[in-house]
Design a protein around this nucleic acid. Structure first.
Lengths: 271, 271
DNA sequence: TAGTGTGAAATAGTTCACAGCA
DNA sequence: TGCTGTGAACTATTTCACACTA
């Protein structure tokens, strides 16, 4: 997951659980595929498999939306597509701006999935004057100076930040001041925003680090079966690297300390 | 959140909670920034603020790693950087391959955050023969035909998929067959993988849909204060759009039905 | 005295298992 | 008969609040 919500931690009471909301787009995608194949109905079991969840969870999720299925039959695909779209607010048009048209911003601008589901890229914005006017994804890049004007004229409430980390906070402040209330942040930085503004964060490096954590654990468990064979003896090099990368540094104080959950590698522990 | 883990749902018992693991990279980033500013120690309160979480959560998270703080003082920045790096497996080198060098793949290849934390882009792979040999991010793109060879020769255990949705499942199968056990998937598709393989998914469109959900809710609550003013009367257009986008279609059966949690807009409900 | 470490309480999310309906 | 909808049990996560100690 590259994800993470800020704001409104437990404010919502009577609504749909956050975990359910996060899965609705998944169901919607699976349903859309079925719809394109003209499949009329689908069971919770089938749909769950297509969405990669278990059927109990799916039924529970749908129960928060209402009773949209038919016992003994399943769910009407078209009807469910409509209901979920409506619940997610996709039956209306959401103009978004992308700020920061580097490699990633350009990739986002070109990403077809945006347009397909109610989102419309209203403008591409970059701080580099050399970029201004250049077409990206068939649309001229506009300069940051006009950010406020663009937001207001297009009624934009969702902004995508794909700038370098250093610029992200300031960009978010300008977006918010101009009326944006939801931000999708690709910059590797924590944005601080006022109450009432939602921020979701997508962070490549964090995702990789989470994978590395599990990967490391796998390697430790198998001890025998080398998980990454060949070339630089990745596994064997681990301990040596550990000592090299960050010299453990003198512990601030000694005192009793629990061993790390998996047990410490002696050579690696600081004295 | 672009996120979502597959596999190993509750297998772990004695380890670090998944939610905690997902936050460690955040702490690490904040700590690294402090380290660069030569800050020697930090309190849970300060660090939590920098990482965008609350301090109780941070202390609880750290308690799973061991007792690394000093009462009355705080945490030693360098020492904590080292401990978290080690816990995440970042003290070793992780060669990764990126498959699918389109806009997004190129953006990923150029993304500096990769290299900075133990990850090394070992190869860029694309199915388009015209791409082969072309340099992207200072590295020649290689053809999919050599995928297995590249994986094995570089001891790659983490693969990044940035192909179109249609190719993703097949690519994942080849990666896994060649020895990859962790996948970061940017393709908007559910990958089905064998047990023991971790998949994390980053999905732009899903993130936007989640934002739209909350955005819609905000708009509904304020009724008076128009959240997105100007131009196309976005808010006012919502109802009309709702009817237009997906014709509600005849309900499969009538029967009593709960109203949607927020109450249904009459004009929008199917007959 | 300031700030960690952690049981215990509260909340959120998942899974079970089955009643009930088409 | 097959499959939904959902209480109830369970598991995970967050938050509280305070004992403890450098």
């Amino acid at each position: 997951m590259a994800t993470g919500r800020t704001h409104r931690p437990a404010t919502r009471s009577r609504g749909i659980p956050e975990a359910t909301v996060a899965r609705l787009p998944l169901y919607l995608r699976a349903l859309t595929a079925l719809s394109e194949r003209s499949v009329p109905t689908v069971s919770s079991e089938e749909l769950a498999a297509a969405a990669g969840v278990n059927s109990a969870k799916l039924r529970k999720d749908f129960s928060y939306l209402g009773s949209y299925g038919t016992r003994g039959v399943g769910y009407d695909v078209e009807y469910l597509v409509y209901q979920i779209s409506r619940e997610l607010g996709l039956t209306q048009d959401w103009p978004v701006v992308i700020v920061g048209i580097g490699n990633l911003g350009a990739a986002l601008a070109n990403y077809g999935g945006f347009a397909s589901r109610g989102f419309r890229v209203a403008a591409l914005i970059d701080a580099d004057p050399a970029m201004a006017g250049k077409p990206v994804a068939g649309m001229p890049v506009q300069h940051t100076d006009d950010l406020e004007k663009i937001i207001r004229e297009n009624g934009v409430s969702i902004g995508v930040i794909a700038t370098p980390a250093g610029a992200a906070q300031q960009v978010s402040e300008r977006l918010i001041a101009a009326g944006v209330t939801s931000i999708l942040n690709f910059a590797p930085t924590v944005l601080s925003v006022p109450d009432g503004v939602d921020v979701r964060k997508v962070d490549l490096s964090i995702e990789l680090q989470i994978l590395a954590f599990h990967e490391q654990r796998k390697a430790g468990e198998d001890s025998a079966a080398a998980p990454a064979p060949a070339v630089g003896a990745v596994t064997a090099a681990a301990e040596a690297d550990a000592a090299a990368v960050v010299p453990p540094a003198a512990r601030p104080a000694s005192g009793a300390r629990k061993p790390g959950p998996e047990g410490d590698v002696p050579a690696v522990m600081p004295a």
